[in-house]
């Protein structure tokens, strides 16, 4: 997270002063990063775009509650994370606590076709695609909170305290969500990774 720079602060002040179009600068500056967060949490582009739009509209309406000393990017990130959580819970409540998917549930390769491998040959590429599909399936097996906690901790590098604040959980529950996420991912991915060796 970078600290809120002066230009963010200036744009926020302009919007609060009644200049709605000043919000455009903030949208253009932050929407791509929000899209990456939303995509990692929801797993498809169309939903991710809608989540970003919802988050930005929600942020605009709450802008008068934004503390000017805070980091605007982090504030937006938190709103977006909660929008994504809401969407995930509405879309697939039945998936929130389901058991790990079976092997036959492995879907066709998705956008993740990369494995932590070096210069893959044809055989390796097939394995990478399978592993990529496995990662997508494994991520879908996580509850909304687990997925959010995992993305924030291991992709975006937030501290446990920051995640707890964003997801409005206590420290123990946050650590537990990260733990459960890694535990489920391990059960899905270790067999695939062993096969890829």
């Amino acid at each position: 997270m970078t600290r809120m720079d002066d230009s963010d602060a200036a744009q926020v002040a302009l919007v609060l002063g009644g200049d709605r179009d000043a919000f455009r600068v903030l949208v253009e500056r932050h929407s791509r990063r929000l899209f990456r967060l939303a995509y990692r949490m929801i797993g498809n582009e169309q939903d991710a775009e809608e989540i970003v739009q919802d988050a930005l509209v929600r942020a605009y309406r709450k802008l008068d509650r934004f503390e000017s000393r805070a980091n605007f990017g982090t504030w937006l990130y938190r709103i977006c994370a909660n929008c994504a959580l809401d969407r995930m819970r509405k879309q697939r409540p039945e998936k929130d606590h389901r058991e790990p998917a079976r092997d036959e549930d492995l879907a066709a390769p998705g956008p993740l076709d990369t494995a932590p491998s070096e210069a893959p040959g044809p055989d390796r590429l097939v394995i990478s695609a399978e592993l990529g599909a496995g990662v997508r399936t494994a991520m879908e097996s996580l509850s909304a909170t687990e997925r959010a906690a995992f993305v924030m901790r291991h992709v975006d590098g937030f501290s446990i305290e920051e995640i707890a604040k964003t997801l409005d959980l206590n420290i123990g529950a946050t650590k537990n969500s990260v733990f459960r996420a890694v535990q489920k991912l391990r059960r899905h991915l270790e067999p695939l990774m062993s096969a890829a060796k």
Binding site: R36, E49, P116, G132, V135, M193
Partner: peptide
């Protein structure tokens, strides 16, 4: 475990 986390967090995001 570290390898699992590394693979899972490498989910590729399409660039808009």
């Amino acid at each position: 475990l570290r390898r699992v986390v590394a693979v899972a967090s490498a989910l590729e995001v399409p660039e808009p």
